[in-house]
Nucleic acid binder design. Structure first.
Lengths: 233, 233
DNA sequence: CGCGGCATTGACTCATTTCAAAGGTGGTGG
DNA sequence: CCACCACCTTTGAAATGAGTCAATGCCGCG
């Protein structure tokens, strides 16, 4: 991993939305890197020396499945911390997905050492890991959805919640291929699900990457039929 | 939630396997409850006042999907901590799945307060959350598997790693129905996948709940064909 | 004994994958 | 400026794997 010292460290949290607390105590340790799309941040199996945080752009954690396909385990947007490893090695490979993605890297040992003497920081780190956990759980719920349309719909809602304010259109940070690998679907099914939602009037496109969400409920259940609890007689 | 004071607190960690450190500092705060199968530990939406840890038996965190189906988000075995919430409310409902499951409950505020003055404890809590995170990620990988047989196979391997030593048969802590809700499959598909693996000689049953794992590779790829990387010419 | 929950198996249906093709887009270099 | 290329996106038709519906067997337990 290549790390560049950042000349002006002050402004680098301005684009974060998810981060409620700014982990100021850690800022002194941070090194910020600018990455091209596809560039690697850390690699599975390599010594896990750093924690990371997305400042701008987007990144992903992924694995290669035995059948040659890729699975994206985690989509990382501004404010998201990642690469918390249990052991001494990274458990996943992380890459930038957008051109010009900014990643902050915190040396793990020093961060932990600092946390030992600063309870407030320790709490904030705990919070960051809790957030990481919440992200994984949200993803589990999406993968657990019944059909493809519901999965894609839930993802759209998730993205909206994470990176745009209600009412504004969502700009998809990743391609259809990435969405497919993220939801364990084929590209074609992702595309079809989107056009399906479009035809139903649940979403409106302005360009292939900009989506205006119209009908939230339709996105959630992914089923044109009346949404009612199945009652056992 | 009903909590009983435990008369002899000393022995309660003896059945834990996953826990590498025992969070001794927290033991003073712990209250242990014995639960019947199906009994609730905490409920989604209620104030999240406690962290929990399975001491014996098994538990699950689940949600009810809009179509009336249940999704199990997390399977909890001895040594697993859970119910780390970001906000003030539990994000999932947790239930015991086995008769006589023992759950330790730690008051959250006191635990955090204690962690503030004890860096070693703070680290151990961090580790516990990291483990929680690792569990979620492993589950994501299982859900991402291509076909049903691979999902079921991976789950068996996961269970083996978590609660029995290599060579010994795995005792399934949950029913086929629970496995179905855990893997987002139908009960029938779970059953068929198991008999499929049995016919292939990958596993051997001794009773419906005891499985001897014979061929690990066959469980992993869930495909009878030769396991080779697909090469683009 | 008979009940209720769990497990297995079969036949049919349907959603998703796969295979195939074509249109769109952006970037690069002549 | 245009041509070309690589990649992304969409759509169609066929193949297949998982869901659904239905029936039966199993087992523990009151």
């Amino acid at each position: 991993m290549r790390l560049h010292q950042n000349r002006d460290i002050e402004f680098r949290f301005e684009n974060r939305k998810g981060a409620h607390r700014s982990l100021r105590q850690l800022d002194a340790l941070a090194v910020v890197t600018r990455l091209r799309r596809g560039e690697e941040i850390c690699r599975q199996g390599h010594p896990a020396g750093h924690w990371h945080c997305v400042l701008q752009g987007a990144a992903e954690r992924s694995v290669l499945k035995l059948d040659g396909r890729r699975q994206i385990v985690d989509l990382l947007l501004p404010g998201d911390f990642f690469a918390f490893a249990i052991g001494q090695e990274y458990d996943f490979t992380s890459c930038a997905v957008l051109e010009g993605t900014l990643i902050a890297s915190y040396p793990r040992r020093q961060a932990e050492w600092l946390a030992d003497s600063d309870p407030a920081l320790a709490r904030e780190i705990r919070e960051a890991v809790f957030n990481s956990l919440a992200r994984m759980q949200a993803q589990l719920l999406i993968l657990g959805r019944v059909n493809a349309v519901a999965k894609v719909g839930s993802l759209l809602l998730d993205l909206e919640a994470r990176l745009s304010r209600r009412g504004e259109p969502v700009v998809l940070p990743i391609s259809r291929y990435d969405i497919a690998d993220y939801l364990s679907l084929s590209v074609e099914t992702v595309s079809r699900s989107l056009t399906d939602l479009k035809h139903r009037g649940a979403i409106v496109f302005s360009g292939t990457r900009r989506v205006q969400i119209v009908d939230r409920d339709a996105l959630e259940d992914g089923d044109g039929e009346a949404r009612m609890m199945r009652v056992r007689h």
